[in-house]
């Protein structure tokens, strides 16, 4: 087991923090969007850079991926990827409370991504006495099946990342998307320190 892997206690602690954050985030989102937002129990795992490419490209019918970087104190940083499928994103403008002709499909995806990412991470950051900043969300360039090509062109400067996968569902609007938080090597060490501190306080 490498230094980048979480111990069982650390994993449990992180899982609990995320569960709490998910509860609060879904509550906030429900009030803002005026509909129920379901968040599925997240999966937390370590992934190799090469396996990540595999996992992402295996997600069939992925229509778009929006990426948004986040960074807080104590070296907590990472990248959030939001993956959308064609059939699950027809009514985003409606869900967001915009008229469909007010914004393009790209802007709808970017807007909802930013809302989901920042709402969840803000609450999560508060759980660990931190505060997050974000850069502007970007639509990753891809045309139909070229996602794999695109990912293969990316050179990762890390081998292992902590991957947190959360699924969002808004059944009233048949909306569904996957949020994948990726926390690379050095930031994993930093998050382990934070988790150890929380565990010590118990």
């Amino acid at each position: 087991m490498s230094e980048f892997h979480l111990t069982e206690d650390q994993q449990d602690c992180l899982q609990e923090l995320i569960n709490i954050a998910m509860g609060q985030a879904s509550d906030q989102l429900a009030r803002y969007l005026d509909t129920f937002v379901y968040l599925k129990v997240p999966s937390i795992e370590s992934v190799d850079a090469k396996d990540l490419i595999q996992t992402l490209s295996q997600q069939q019918n992925t229509m778009a991926i929006v990426s948004q970087g986040f960074f807080g104190y104590e070296g907590i940083r990472g990248e959030a990827l939001l993956a959308y499928q064609e059939e699950d994103s027809g009514r985003i403008a409606d869900l967001l409370g915009y008229e469909p002709d007010e914004l393009s499909q790209d802007e709808q995806l970017i807007d909802i991504s930013s809302i989901l990412t920042t709402t969840f991470l803000n609450v999560f950051a508060r759980q660990i006495d931190n505060q997050m900043s974000y850069n502007a969300p970007k639509l990753l360039p891809m045309v139909q099946n070229s996602l794999l090509d695109h990912l293969q062109q990316m050179t990762f400067n890390w081998d292992v990342a902590l991957k947190i996968n959360i699924n969002y569902q808004v059944t009233d609007y048949s909306f569904n998307c996957n949020m994948i938080l990726l926390i690379p090597e050095t930031a994993i060490l930093n998050i382990k320190k934070v988790l150890d501190r929380i565990l010590a306080d118990f």
Binding site: Y32, Y98, L103, S104, T118, T119
Partner: peptide, 26 residues
């Protein structure tokens, strides 16, 4: 664009989170 921006600004106040608008979209 008043309607659109009002909705966007409302999200910032209500969710207490940042929002972005890129030249690539507007």
């Amino acid at each position: 664009p008043e309607r659109w921006l009002t909705r966007k600004l409302t999200s910032v106040l209500q969710l207490n989170s940042p929002s972005f608008c890129s030249w690539q979209q507007r």
